[in-house]
Design a binder for these strands. Structure first.
Lengths: 117, 117
DNA sequence: CCGTCATTTCCATACCAATGGAACTATTCG
DNA sequence: CGAATAGTTCCATTGGTATGGAAATGACGG
């Protein structure tokens, strides 16, 4: 769950693309069961090779997982990774304060563990 | 607070770079008072022209704001935008369930407003 | 006005990301 | 084994991103 600035950059970069964000959301919806690469390609209307590129991008960033099932490769969203990313953003990019407050305090080492967002 | 997939991609892309993520975190720490472009450049050790590029990138994505003060341009983090981004991620990329749960339900229109993350 | 201070815009360069067809690899089934 | 199915890797092309020096813009003080 530890997240460094550079792994956050990697995860953000992996999600910062239309096809990949859609793809990730699709996998989130699919849940633990996941989806085969082919099913995803069909949903997105993207050629196989391009999709494979995006899948490996998300995998490299640790946001999705792969498992083989018969001749299909099944992909699932890694909720822990996503959770870690969101936690990182809340702690480092929202001033550690609740997101809803207009202007959080000017802190730099708060351990306030933002609870309500 | 409305956030579309494409504005989310833009915001994610703006944060998905070492200098820009550091810069944004710096502005978050600075709070409402903000920081001048020059002060940021010095902190980051980045030449003025490069910094300006990153500042305008973040501005375009709506994550930071600019105001003039004397001959300095002061930048501040836009917490509402950040809040909207995190909310988007929670609702669309965590299955709408609390982030801490291992595998959220397979929903697609939940209004569950994740409370505890 | 004129200098100077703060910052941006312009520009060229280098690099990295996205795309899709074709060839390759892995797995199952007859 | 050999054909068919599911995906990936390879490769060339295209376009966008990051960088930093130099020139331009805007604001203030004398």
């Amino acid at each position: 769950m530890e997240m460094t600035a550079s792994s956050a950059v990697e995860a953000l970069g992996a999600l910062a693309q239309d096809h990949r964000l859609t793809l990730f959301r699709l996998l989130v919806q699919a849940g633990a069961q996941g989806m085969s690469a082919g099913a995803v390609a069909q949903q997105l209307g993207v050629p196989n090779s391009s999709l494979s590129f995006h899948l490996s991008h998300l995998t490299r960033a640790g946001l999705i997982r792969q498992r083989r099932e018969g001749r299909s490769l099944i992909y699932t969203a890694d909720y822990h990774a996503m959770n870690a990313l969101v936690a990182y953003l809340l702690e480092n990019c929202c001033g550690g304060a609740a997101c809803d407050s207009d202007f959080p305090v000017n802190n730099h080492a708060s351990r306030s563990e933002g609870k309500d967002c």
